[in-house]
Design a protein around this nucleic acid. Structure first.
Lengths: 201, 201
DNA sequence: ATGATTTCTTAATGTAGTTCAAGTTGAAAA
DNA sequence: TTTTCAACTTGAACTACATTAAGAAATCAT
């Protein structure tokens, strides 16, 4: 179990992240820190099951979460990875309060701060500046999603794989390739062929 | 040219849209209305050229805007359509303040309200409630983008076309099919085949 | 109305990707 | 140690798409 002092250091990270966009005074900062729940997740830990209604959002300190959906054939499609310094929640379920179609779990041992919805709503009321922070956050995430759409539609898989490696230079060594294939939207077999081709050129 | 009274009626629409999420008093409402610039766009009118930095966001009253990018081969990839009652504020260039890689134009005669960035920033300051409104707006857009990613990756083109028709039952009759093909991420020829197949079953 | 331009379709051929099946490697469990 | 199991690779057959090129249909400007 992590010591309290460690956790405080980790809270620094999240505050620093927030401070890039809004300025918090000591009181606000303390209040916000008080609603952060540190959690250490074992590999495979599921944060949001299929059909559950998301009650939390998360900030990742280390490790890797994935947000994925299943199609009728039981095939998994990874929508997002969240690694250090990223916020994540199954927004759809969280926002609409409908059962999750996407599952959220830890691919490797992962540390997160959890913020539950009730607390989050209160933050918005008590420190309206946070509306701004999350507006900017969602704006930026949205831009990333749009970029991804464009990529999936117009960039061939081999190129996408190369871009992926650049974007996630560390994580791609730690997680099984099949997850990367899923994220790239291709079969593991085809990823294998791409890797083979790259290795021999 | 539209009469002032017409424009006021149209401003009603946008206020109604906003009021689903936040409550405005008369003063706030009046102030917000004062920064809305009504524009009637001819077919083909470009709102944002390649390489420009977006200075405005838009609310669509009628017609259809498209936001698209070009790849190296000069092929167009439509990222978003915006039709009646939609905000198109998810412009990459607008958010990041970088030269646009994506072009915004009107596919058919279109009416919009334009809000320029400077005014928008002032709204956030004078009526912080708008941070909330746009946070929710971006949240929702992001969810839509994520759904689209999932679709492009796991749903075959024929199914996607059927979903599209349901989602845009009116617009799909008014714009050339090639744009729909582009949005679906397929070639016009293949869309043609899909349509032929559907017609004969 | 006429031609010109754009849109849509059809068909042939090509390719990026999938699926299936079999085999390899490596790590963990017994 | 051996068994087991998941991750990864390889190859053959297949499919969903793209590309090219041509013609038909619709739209537009004159």
């Amino acid at each position: 179990m992590a010591l309290a002092v460690d956790i405080d250091t980790k809270k620094e990270i999240i505050i620093k992240n927030i401070s890039r966009y809004i300025t918090l005074n000591d009181e606000e900062r303390e209040y916000f820190e008080s609603i952060l729940h540190y959690r250490k997740l074992a590999k495979g830990k599921v944060l949001l099951h299929y059909g559950e209604i998301a009650q939390s959002q998360y900030f990742v300190i280390s490790g890797c979460l994935r947000n994925y959906s299943m199609d009728e054939d039981g095939k998994e499609h990874i929508i997002t990875f969240a690694i250090a310094d990223w916020w994540i929640s199954d927004l759809y379920s969280y926002i609409t309060e409908t059962p999750a179609e996407q599952i959220l779990d830890a691919l490797i041992p992962t540390e997160v701060f959890e913020i539950c919805k009730k607390d989050m709503e209160e933050v918005y009321v008590r420190i309206p500046k946070f509306e701004r922070f999350f507006r900017i956050l969602f704006q930026n995430s949205m831009v990333n999603q749009m970029r991804r759409i464009r990529q999936v539609m117009s960039v061939p898989a081999e190129e996408r794989y190369k871009i992926f490696i650049k974007q996630y230079p560390n994580i791609f060594r730690e997680i099984p390739l099949k997850y990367i294939a899923s994220y790239l939207g291709i079969s593991p077999e085809f990823l294998s062929k791409i890797r083979n081709k790259i290795a021999h050129t």
